[in-house]
Design a protein around this nucleic acid. Sequence first.
DNA 1: TCAAAAGTGTTGGAAGTACACCCATGT
DNA 2: ACATGGGTGTACTTCCAACACTTTTGA
Lengths: 262, 262
Amino acid sequence: MPAPTPGIGLAVSTVIFALRPNETGEPSVWLPLVRRIRDPYLHRWALPGGPVSVDESLETSARRNLLETTGLQPTYLEQLYAFGDVDRSPTTRLVSIVYWALVRPEEAERVSLGENVRWFPADDLPDLAFDHNLIVEYALWRLRTKMEYSRIAHAFLGEQFTLAELRGVHEAVLQKPLDPANFRRQMESSGAVEPTGEVVSGGRHRPPKLYRYAGAVELVDAGPLTARVVAAAAQHPPISRDDGPAEPRVAESAPALQEDHR
Amino acid sequence: MPAPTPGIGLAVSTVIFALRPNETGEPSVWLPLVRRIRDPYLHRWALPGGPVSVDESLETSARRNLLETTGLQPTYLEQLYAFGDVDRSPTTRLVSIVYWALVRPEEAERVSLGENVRWFPADDLPDLAFDHNLIVEYALWRLRTKMEYSRIAHAFLGEQFTLAELRGVHEAVLQKPLDPANFRRQMESSGAVEPTGEVVSGGRHRPPKLYRYAGAVELVDAGPLTARVVAAAAQHPPISRDDGPAEPRVAESAPALQEDHR
DNA sequence: TCAAAAGTGTTGGAAGTACACCCATGT
DNA sequence: ACATGGGTGTACTTCCAACACTTTTGA
């Protein structure tokens, strides 16, 4: 009965962010793009993505595509927005469900670079295919605003990290320096992190403590979509996050997948 | 990428919110649902919606469907989320781009009620078709959290309003009383509202000043997509809040276009 | 006059900002 | 010893919640 909508292509694309050193050695936000090998926009750089199969959910489709095109398995994945303007593709009508993802630097370096996949600094991109420049801009805006009120920064880091490293993530994303003392207190009082007991020696200064994310402080009560998300995530073992994409607003909860245009 | 995906239906649905008095006379959040007139979920209540045409954008599709099924032209409309689990429709694969909308009470009352369209209190719904219960729950959560940090409350009101009315909107949505004095100061200092100079007499108390929204202040910071949204909205005249009486229209009950509509 | 809601003033606490200062390590 | 970041203390400001109080109307 429900006839497939004729003439409209349905695709999933993903904006993948990772922190990498820029020219001056400072960490900044990068993303991998793939070169198109067919029309329209032949040879242009574009977000990784592809059509949705009938037997996979949107998120599953995003993960599969990421793995196939870039080899990446993100630590964080969230739906961003559905783009469906009639003229966004010159040849056919195309609706894209766009996700955004965060990956750790180590994993980012494993991405096989070549003619068809390359990293670009997030705020200095060439002309991309379709409306992908706008999409990246929006994803970047989302990353920055969300960093200010949630705890997604850890998705850029490994299991353990120093508070200086965590602060570095915030500084790189927000592009402004943060007061170490105040940042420390905020993190500690939020209950988001807990010390592992270990320290890092080797630097020529006082050895910093290592922290991990406190999964217990899980943003409780998370919003209505959380159950779905958690269940879905459980089917994707390689994600290894104690924490899931859950989403803390201050004392509040939030659905993990969400589209909050703040 | 653009090859039309076969076997997947693409639809748009909308969660419409309005404030109406409940049993005890207090204003609370209600939404209109339409009764399904075909399988699957024949005769179940469902969100208004329908398939996307090849020649209309997602938002345009949402507006058209709203007008056709409920006669409503929302003062506020925003994309909520794309739902695409493989089993969300028992018969076919169905991906729905869901929007949420706010309408004014006066307009809400014009919705022609009947066998096929009826208002329901938002937190006391029957079993709906598809995953629509989850969707409404999520939309409600979004409405409530967004009310706390943005200025969408006016979308429930007319051109002019007293601060008590505006506070009433907040209280109804957030389901908790707010301090009149503090609420007043917050609104005034935010610059979101400005006095019109008029007052309302007739109550047996001091006549309250009327306010209007200060258009200069952005409704919500929607980030990079704002330009798109604003431009798109400009093509739909009757929607804006600060243009004239722009009055909406009679709502004739139409054959419910629904998700699986062909 | 009184009731009721509009509107103002004041206070105390929580949370964010700036910055001085001590601590522990490698060289 | 001293340079370097790790880590603590503290004063200042800003925002928010609570609530006492004054103002203006209709009855």
